[in-house]
Write a protein that binds this DNA or RNA. Structure first.
Length: 186
DNA sequence: CCCTGATTCGC
DNA sequence: GCGAATCAGG
């Protein structure tokens, strides 16, 4: 698989949209995140819009040899990126599922306690929604919207081994339970 | 351990 | 040009 114009455009678009390299790789298919990152750098674009997901702290120079990133070749891709409107107010690293086969297993676990919580949050572009499941199972599976609905999707932020939710949703999930003493008060 | 992007370097 | 390996950080 080579970097066709279409693939480069999609790459540029998704990158500018704030998706992570791995998400983009999954979206493109037949490529690894390394390939995506390598291409991104080769294209001369690297610091896209700030993402609230995770790794985003452009590391300082850690190599002995300095490298002037991208010389100065205004390519079509840059033009595209510049023209691409990105009014996406993201606070998180989106992800979603819904289009393809989405598994709603955690539903039973959450319905017990977090059912009433509407979970406002942000709007995630469709192109990003398909990426979530493509990623892995270590992402927050907090359902947003009505399962089955077209606009249904999962939080998608990184979760931790323990729970299937990210820190935020984890706190919401295991919260109230006024008189819920699962363990006998020792 | 998982993830993120950054850089190097052989192909 | 490409991307795996590696690195550096969260």
């Amino acid at each position: 698989m080579s970097w066709t114009a279409e693939r480069v455009e999609l790459l540029t678009k998704l990158w500018a949209d704030g998706l992570s390299a791995s998400q983009i790789a999954g979206e493109l298919g037949n490529v690894t995140r390394n390939a995506v990152i390598g291409k991104v750098h080769r294209l001369g674009l690297s610091g896209r819009a700030k993402s609230g997901g995770s790794a985003t702290k452009t590391r300082k120079a850690a190599t002995p040899a300095a490298r002037p990133v991208a010389p100065s070749k205004p390519t079509v891709t840059e033009a595209v990126a510049a023209t691409t409107p990105s009014p996406t107010p993201r606070h998180i690293q989106p992800t979603v599922a819904g289009a393809t086969a989405l598994k709603v297993e955690p539903i039973e676990a959450i319905e017990t306690e977090i059912a009433p919580v509407p979970v406002a949050d942000i709007f995630i572009p469709l192109n990003e929604r398909a990426s979530i499941l493509t990623l892995n199972e270590r992402t927050c599976k907090w359902p947003i919207g009505d399962p089955g609905a077209e606009n249904f999707y999962f939080c998608g932020r990184q979760s931790d081994g323990g729970t299937p939710y990210c820190a935020h949703h984890r706190s919401i999930a295991y919260q109230p339970v006024s008189d819920r003493r699962s363990r006998r008060a020792s």
